[in-house]
Amino acid sequence: DAPDEFRDPLMDTLMTDPVRLPSGTIMDRSIILRHLLNSPTDPFNRQTLTESMLEPVPELKEQIQAWMR
């Protein structure tokens, strides 16, 4: 099983494109984008959230890719 820090906190699946929300939570980009289609909010604190506020986490993405090899 993947380490917890590699798993999306909402869907508990392996992240492939991790992004940091303004709240500091790291999620998979595809999952948070799907959530934003229904509700333009951070799913953990209900603060306003837009796609432009998502910050890529390239170092975590590299760690996940290395773990998958």
Rank of each mutant, 00 (worst) to 15 (best):
V57Q: 09
G24A: 03
D4R: 15
I31S: 12
R7A: 03
R34G: 10
I26S: 00
N38A: 12
I64G: 01
L10W: 11
Q63S: 10
D4P: 15
L60V: 05
P22T: 02
Q65L: 15
S23I: 02
L37A: 14
S52F: 11
R29D: 01
D12H: 15
L36F: 06
M15L: 05
T25G: 06
E51K: 11
A66M: 15
P18K: 02
L49Q: 00
L37Y: 10
Q47V: 10
F6C: 06
W67P: 00
L14N: 02
S23D: 06
E62L: 13
A2R: 05
T16Y: 12
R34E: 10
W67I: 04
L21Q: 01
L54R: 01
T13Y: 07
Q47N: 11
M27F: 06
L54K: 01
L36P: 00
V19I: 06
L21C: 05
P9W: 07
D12I: 07
L14Q: 03
V57H: 07
P18S: 00
T25R: 15
P3E: 03
I31H: 08
E51P: 13
R20M: 09
S52K: 11
P40Y: 09
D1G: 13
E59K: 11
E59T: 11
L33I: 11
W67K: 03
E62S: 12
I32M: 02
T16R: 13
T25P: 07
D42F: 04
R20C: 07
R7D: 03
D12G: 15
L49K: 00
S52I: 09
N38C: 13
S23T: 07
K61E: 06
P9M: 07
W67C: 07
D1S: 14
L54G: 00
P58N: 09
L37C: 10
N38W: 12
G24D: 03
Q47S: 15
L60Q: 01
I32S: 00
R46N: 15
A66P: 01
Q65S: 10
F44M: 05
V57I: 09
A66W: 09
L10C: 12
M11Q: 10
M68N: 07
K61C: 08
D17R: 04
Q47T: 15
R20T: 03
T25H: 14
T48W: 15
R29G: 02
F44E: 01
T48L: 15
R20N: 01
D1A: 13
P22C: 05
V19Q: 03
H35P: 00
D12R: 15
T41S: 09
F6A: 02
P9R: 07
R69K: 14
S30Y: 12
D8A: 03
I26L: 04
P56R: 08
F6P: 14
I32Y: 02
E51N: 07
T16M: 14
T50Y: 13
D42P: 02
I26M: 03
D1M: 14
M11E: 13
L54M: 05
W67Y: 10
T41L: 09
Q63M: 14
V57R: 04
D42I: 03
S23K: 02
I64A: 00
P18C: 06
M53Q: 11
S23P: 00
S30Q: 13
P40Q: 14
V19E: 01
G24N: 05
N38D: 12
L33S: 07
V57E: 08
I64F: 02
P9N: 05
P43W: 05
T16K: 12
M27A: 05
D28S: 04
M15Q: 00
D17N: 08
D12F: 15
W67N: 04
V57G: 03
L36M: 09
L36W: 03
M53A: 07
E51Y: 10
E59P: 05
P56M: 07
E51H: 09
T41F: 14
L37D: 10
F6R: 03
H35R: 06
L60H: 01
P22A: 04
Q65F: 14
E62A: 15
L54V: 04
I26F: 04
G24E: 01
T13I: 12
S39R: 07
R29P: 01
L60N: 00
D8E: 03
L37T: 11
I64Q: 01
D17Y: 06
T25K: 14
D4M: 15
F6H: 03
E55C: 09
T25I: 15
S39K: 07
L36G: 00
S52D: 15
I26N: 01
N45Y: 06
L37F: 10
T13R: 07
H35C: 10
V57K: 03
R29Q: 04
P58H: 10
S52H: 12
P56D: 14
D8K: 07
T25W: 15
V19W: 06
E59V: 09
D12N: 15
P56A: 11
P3N: 05
W67G: 02
S39H: 10
R29A: 05
D8C: 10
P18Q: 03
Q65D: 15
V19Y: 06
M68F: 11
R46L: 14
F44L: 05
V57F: 08
I31E: 05
E62P: 01
T25N: 11
I64L: 06
G24Q: 04
L10A: 04
I32K: 00
G24Y: 03
E55K: 11
F44H: 03
T50I: 10
T41Y: 13
D4I: 15
N38Q: 13
D1P: 12
K61P: 02
T41Q: 08
R46T: 09
G24C: 07
R69T: 12
D42M: 02
K61L: 13
K61I: 07
T48P: 15
D28C: 08
R7M: 11
M53W: 06
M11A: 13
I64Y: 03
L36Y: 02
R46K: 14
G24H: 04
L49M: 08
S30F: 11
I32L: 07
R29I: 06
R20L: 08
W67V: 02
D4K: 15
P3Y: 05
A2D: 05
